[in-house]
Amino acid sequence: MPDDTAFMTEPAAAAQGKTAVLYRMVMPSHLCPSGLKAENLLRSKGYEVDDRHLTSRPQVDAFKELHGVATTPQVWIDGQRVGGYQDLRAAITDHDPKARTYRPVIYLFAVAAATAIALSIGFVGALTWQTLGWFISISMILLGMQKLRDIDGFTTGFLSYDLLARRWVPYAYIYPWIETGAGILMTGMLLTWLAAPAALFVATIGAVSVIKAVYVDKRELACACVGGGSNVPLGAVSLTENLGMMAMSIVMLVLLFA
Protein backbone atom coordinates (compact mmCIF):
# COMPACT_ATOMS: atom_id res chain seq x y z
CA MET A 1 0.00 0.00 0.00
CA PRO A 2 1.14 3.58 -0.62
CA ASP A 3 2.49 5.55 2.33
CA ASP A 4 0.73 8.49 4.01
CA THR A 5 1.88 10.94 1.33
CA ALA A 6 0.63 8.92 -1.65
CA PHE A 7 -2.32 11.24 -2.18
CA MET A 8 0.12 14.10 -2.85
CA THR A 9 1.56 12.46 -5.99
CA GLU A 10 0.38 13.45 -9.46
CA PRO A 11 -2.22 10.88 -10.55
CA ALA A 12 -2.45 11.87 -14.22
CA ALA A 13 0.99 10.46 -15.04
CA ALA A 14 0.10 7.08 -13.53
CA ALA A 15 -3.29 6.89 -15.21
CA GLN A 16 -2.24 5.68 -18.63
CA GLY A 17 -3.55 2.92 -20.91
CA LYS A 18 -5.54 0.39 -18.95
CA THR A 19 -4.31 1.64 -15.60
CA ALA A 20 -6.72 3.81 -13.65
CA VAL A 21 -5.89 5.77 -10.51
CA LEU A 22 -8.50 5.67 -7.77
CA TYR A 23 -8.48 7.71 -4.58
CA ARG A 24 -10.98 6.56 -1.97
CA MET A 25 -11.54 6.78 1.76
CA VAL A 26 -10.45 3.72 3.71
CA MET A 27 -10.52 4.75 7.36
CA PRO A 28 -11.11 2.76 10.57
CA SER A 29 -14.52 4.40 10.99
CA HIS A 30 -15.52 4.68 7.33
CA LEU A 31 -15.06 2.56 4.22
CA CYS A 32 -16.44 4.55 1.30
CA PRO A 33 -19.20 2.54 -0.50
CA SER A 34 -18.85 4.60 -3.70
CA GLY A 35 -15.12 3.92 -3.66
CA LEU A 36 -15.75 0.18 -3.51
CA LYS A 37 -18.23 0.44 -6.37
CA ALA A 38 -15.77 2.49 -8.43
CA GLU A 39 -13.01 -0.08 -7.90
CA ASN A 40 -15.32 -2.95 -8.83
CA LEU A 41 -16.55 -1.16 -11.97
CA LEU A 42 -13.02 -0.37 -13.12
CA ARG A 43 -11.85 -3.96 -12.66
CA SER A 44 -14.96 -5.30 -14.41
CA LYS A 45 -14.04 -3.16 -17.43
CA GLY A 46 -10.52 -4.56 -17.54
CA TYR A 47 -8.63 -1.76 -15.82
CA GLU A 48 -5.69 -2.27 -13.52
CA VAL A 49 -6.49 -0.14 -10.50
CA ASP A 50 -3.84 1.98 -8.79
CA ASP A 51 -5.84 1.99 -5.58
CA ARG A 52 -4.76 4.87 -3.34
CA HIS A 53 -6.30 4.96 0.11
CA LEU A 54 -7.10 8.10 2.07
CA THR A 55 -6.77 6.82 5.61
CA SER A 56 -7.39 9.90 7.75
CA ARG A 57 -9.51 13.04 7.73
CA PRO A 58 -6.44 15.31 7.29
CA GLN A 59 -5.48 13.28 4.20
CA VAL A 60 -9.00 13.61 2.80
CA ASP A 61 -9.09 17.35 3.38
CA ALA A 62 -5.62 17.86 1.91
CA PHE A 63 -6.52 15.75 -1.14
CA LYS A 64 -9.70 17.76 -1.79
CA GLU A 65 -7.84 21.06 -1.48
CA LEU A 66 -4.95 19.93 -3.69
CA HIS A 67 -7.18 18.74 -6.54
CA GLY A 68 -10.01 21.22 -6.10
CA VAL A 69 -12.70 18.60 -5.53
CA ALA A 70 -15.54 18.48 -3.03
CA THR A 71 -16.02 14.71 -2.73
CA THR A 72 -14.29 11.37 -2.91
CA PRO A 73 -13.76 8.93 -4.53
CA GLN A 74 -11.98 10.45 -7.51
CA VAL A 75 -10.78 8.57 -10.58
CA TRP A 76 -8.21 9.33 -13.24
CA ILE A 77 -8.16 7.57 -16.64
CA ASP A 78 -5.92 8.29 -19.64
CA GLY A 79 -4.21 11.14 -17.85
CA GLN A 80 -7.48 12.94 -17.08
CA ARG A 81 -9.58 13.22 -13.97
CA VAL A 82 -12.94 11.57 -14.63
CA GLY A 83 -14.58 12.42 -11.30
CA GLY A 84 -16.53 10.37 -8.80
CA TYR A 85 -18.38 7.09 -9.15
CA GLN A 86 -21.36 8.46 -11.06
CA ASP A 87 -19.05 10.33 -13.44
CA LEU A 88 -17.02 7.17 -13.94
CA ARG A 89 -20.13 5.11 -14.59
CA ALA A 90 -21.31 7.59 -17.23
CA ALA A 91 -17.85 7.68 -18.83
CA ILE A 92 -17.17 3.95 -19.25
CA THR A 93 -20.69 2.51 -19.52
CA ASP A 94 -23.88 3.42 -21.35
CA HIS A 95 -25.57 4.46 -18.11
CA ASP A 96 -27.58 7.67 -18.25
CA PRO A 97 -29.24 8.50 -14.90
CA LYS A 98 -31.81 10.69 -16.66
CA ALA A 99 -32.75 8.18 -19.36
CA ARG A 100 -36.30 6.83 -19.43
CA THR A 101 -36.42 3.18 -18.42
CA TYR A 102 -38.99 0.49 -17.70
CA ARG A 103 -36.53 -1.53 -15.62
CA PRO A 104 -38.10 -0.80 -12.19
CA VAL A 105 -41.55 -2.00 -13.25
CA ILE A 106 -40.12 -5.00 -15.10
CA TYR A 107 -38.44 -6.12 -11.88
CA LEU A 108 -41.58 -5.43 -9.85
CA PHE A 109 -43.87 -7.35 -12.20
CA ALA A 110 -41.36 -10.21 -12.36
CA VAL A 111 -41.42 -10.52 -8.55
CA ALA A 112 -45.23 -10.35 -8.54
CA ALA A 113 -45.46 -13.05 -11.22
CA ALA A 114 -43.01 -15.33 -9.39
CA THR A 115 -44.94 -14.90 -6.13
CA ALA A 116 -48.27 -15.60 -7.83
CA ILE A 117 -46.87 -18.75 -9.42
CA ALA A 118 -45.43 -19.90 -6.09
CA LEU A 119 -48.78 -19.37 -4.36
CA SER A 120 -50.62 -21.24 -7.11
CA ILE A 121 -48.33 -24.23 -7.06
CA GLY A 122 -48.06 -24.28 -3.27
CA PHE A 123 -51.76 -23.88 -2.43
CA VAL A 124 -53.69 -24.88 -5.56
CA GLY A 125 -51.25 -27.33 -7.10
CA ALA A 126 -51.48 -25.87 -10.61
CA LEU A 127 -51.52 -22.64 -12.59
CA THR A 128 -55.10 -21.41 -12.91
CA TRP A 129 -57.01 -18.19 -13.49
CA GLN A 130 -56.38 -17.49 -9.81
CA THR A 131 -52.68 -17.17 -10.70
CA LEU A 132 -53.48 -14.19 -12.89
CA GLY A 133 -55.65 -12.73 -10.14
CA TRP A 134 -52.84 -13.07 -7.61
CA PHE A 135 -50.38 -11.53 -10.07
CA ILE A 136 -52.56 -8.43 -10.38
CA SER A 137 -53.30 -8.12 -6.66
CA ILE A 138 -49.68 -8.68 -5.63
CA SER A 139 -48.59 -6.12 -8.23
CA MET A 140 -51.03 -3.68 -6.62
CA ILE A 141 -49.43 -4.26 -3.21
CA LEU A 142 -45.90 -3.79 -4.52
CA LEU A 143 -46.83 -0.70 -6.54
CA GLY A 144 -48.65 0.75 -3.55
CA MET A 145 -45.64 0.21 -1.31
CA GLN A 146 -43.39 1.94 -3.84
CA LYS A 147 -45.67 4.96 -3.65
CA LEU A 148 -45.87 4.91 0.15
CA ARG A 149 -42.11 4.77 0.66
CA ASP A 150 -41.89 8.35 -0.70
CA ILE A 151 -45.40 9.72 -0.47
CA ASP A 152 -44.35 13.32 -1.13
CA GLY A 153 -42.38 12.37 -4.23
CA PHE A 154 -45.28 10.26 -5.48
CA THR A 155 -47.88 12.97 -4.98
CA THR A 156 -45.77 15.52 -6.85
CA GLY A 157 -45.69 13.29 -9.91
CA PHE A 158 -49.28 12.11 -9.52
CA LEU A 159 -50.63 15.66 -9.38
CA SER A 160 -49.11 16.38 -12.77
CA TYR A 161 -51.67 14.22 -14.54
CA ASP A 162 -54.34 12.59 -12.34
CA LEU A 163 -57.67 14.32 -12.99
CA LEU A 164 -59.23 13.79 -9.55
CA ALA A 165 -56.06 14.61 -7.60
CA ARG A 166 -55.73 17.90 -9.45
CA ARG A 167 -59.22 18.87 -8.26
CA TRP A 168 -58.86 17.45 -4.73
CA VAL A 169 -55.22 17.18 -3.57
CA PRO A 170 -55.85 14.86 -0.56
CA TYR A 171 -56.81 12.13 -3.04
CA ALA A 172 -53.16 11.92 -4.10
CA TYR A 173 -52.25 10.94 -0.53
CA ILE A 174 -55.17 8.53 -0.19
CA TYR A 175 -54.63 6.70 -3.48
CA PRO A 176 -51.61 4.56 -2.43
CA TRP A 177 -53.48 3.34 0.66
CA ILE A 178 -56.49 2.34 -1.43
CA GLU A 179 -54.30 0.52 -3.94
CA THR A 180 -52.27 -1.30 -1.28
CA GLY A 181 -55.29 -2.15 0.87
CA ALA A 182 -57.36 -3.39 -2.06
CA GLY A 183 -54.42 -5.50 -3.22
CA ILE A 184 -54.09 -7.11 0.20
CA LEU A 185 -57.81 -7.90 0.42
CA MET A 186 -57.92 -9.22 -3.15
CA THR A 187 -54.91 -11.46 -2.50
CA GLY A 188 -56.66 -12.95 0.51
CA MET A 189 -60.02 -12.91 -1.29
CA LEU A 190 -61.48 -11.00 1.65
CA LEU A 191 -64.13 -8.26 1.80
CA THR A 192 -64.63 -8.35 -1.95
CA TRP A 193 -67.64 -6.04 -1.63
CA LEU A 194 -65.23 -3.33 -0.36
CA ALA A 195 -61.98 -4.07 -2.17
CA ALA A 196 -63.33 -4.52 -5.69
CA PRO A 197 -65.35 -1.27 -5.91
CA ALA A 198 -62.50 0.71 -4.35
CA ALA A 199 -59.98 -0.67 -6.83
CA LEU A 200 -62.38 -0.18 -9.73
CA PHE A 201 -62.95 3.46 -8.74
CA VAL A 202 -59.27 4.47 -8.53
CA ALA A 203 -58.27 2.39 -11.55
CA THR A 204 -60.94 3.91 -13.78
CA ILE A 205 -59.93 7.44 -12.85
CA GLY A 206 -56.30 6.49 -13.36
CA ALA A 207 -56.88 5.00 -16.79
CA VAL A 208 -58.85 8.03 -17.98
CA SER A 209 -56.15 10.36 -16.59
CA VAL A 210 -53.36 8.53 -18.41
CA ILE A 211 -55.27 8.40 -21.69
CA LYS A 212 -55.94 12.14 -21.52
CA ALA A 213 -52.40 13.14 -20.51
CA VAL A 214 -50.49 10.87 -22.89
CA TYR A 215 -52.72 10.04 -25.83
CA VAL A 216 -54.92 13.15 -26.02
CA ASP A 217 -52.74 15.98 -24.71
CA LYS A 218 -49.52 14.30 -25.97
CA ARG A 219 -47.60 15.16 -22.81
CA GLU A 220 -44.30 13.46 -21.97
CA LEU A 221 -44.31 12.77 -18.24
CA ALA A 222 -42.68 10.42 -15.75
CA CYS A 223 -44.99 7.78 -14.35
CA ALA A 224 -45.72 7.99 -10.63
CA CYS A 225 -46.74 4.30 -10.66
CA VAL A 226 -43.50 3.22 -8.96
CA GLY A 227 -43.27 6.24 -6.69
CA GLY A 228 -41.57 9.60 -6.87
CA GLY A 229 -38.36 10.28 -8.73
CA SER A 230 -38.70 7.43 -11.21
CA ASN A 231 -37.65 7.61 -14.84
CA VAL A 232 -40.43 5.30 -16.01
CA PRO A 233 -42.35 7.00 -18.83
CA LEU A 234 -46.04 7.64 -18.27
CA GLY A 235 -48.06 5.65 -20.76
CA ALA A 236 -48.38 1.96 -21.44
CA VAL A 237 -47.20 0.75 -18.02
CA SER A 238 -49.48 2.95 -15.95
CA LEU A 239 -52.39 2.33 -18.32
CA THR A 240 -51.82 -1.43 -18.08
CA GLU A 241 -51.69 -1.20 -14.28
CA ASN A 242 -55.04 0.57 -14.20
CA LEU A 243 -56.69 -1.66 -16.80
CA GLY A 244 -55.53 -4.75 -14.91
CA MET A 245 -57.02 -3.42 -11.68
CA MET A 246 -60.27 -2.61 -13.49
CA ALA A 247 -60.51 -6.07 -15.06
CA MET A 248 -59.85 -7.89 -11.81
CA SER A 249 -62.33 -5.72 -9.92
CA ILE A 250 -65.06 -6.34 -12.47
CA VAL A 251 -64.45 -10.11 -12.44
CA MET A 252 -64.56 -10.23 -8.65
CA LEU A 253 -67.79 -8.22 -8.56
CA VAL A 254 -69.37 -10.49 -11.15
CA LEU A 255 -68.38 -13.57 -9.16
CA LEU A 256 -69.60 -11.96 -5.93
CA PHE A 257 -73.08 -11.29 -7.25
CA ALA A 258 -73.39 -14.25 -9.60
Rank of each mutant, 00 (worst) to 15 (best):
M1H: 11
T9G: 00
A15I: 07
G17C: 06
K18G: 02
A20R: 01
V26Y: 09
S29H: 12
S29L: 08
H30L: 14
L31Q: 14
L36G: 11
K37M: 07
A38L: 02
N40G: 05
L42G: 10
V49P: 03
L54K: 04
E65C: 04
P73A: 13
Q80P: 12
G83M: 02
Y85T: 03
T93S: 12
D94E: 12
D94L: 06
I106W: 13
F109D: 04
V111E: 09
V124D: 15
W134I: 03
F135I: 06
S139T: 10
G153R: 12
T155W: 06
G157N: 07
R167A: 14
A172H: 00
Y175R: 03
W177Q: 03
T187K: 01
G188F: 14
P197V: 14
L200D: 04
L200S: 04
V202P: 00
I205E: 08
K212L: 07
Y215V: 13
V216H: 12
D217I: 05
R219V: 01
R219C: 01
C223A: 14
V232A: 04
S238F: 01
T240M: 14
E241R: 09
E241F: 13
L243C: 10
M246D: 04
M252D: 05
L253T: 01
F257H: 10
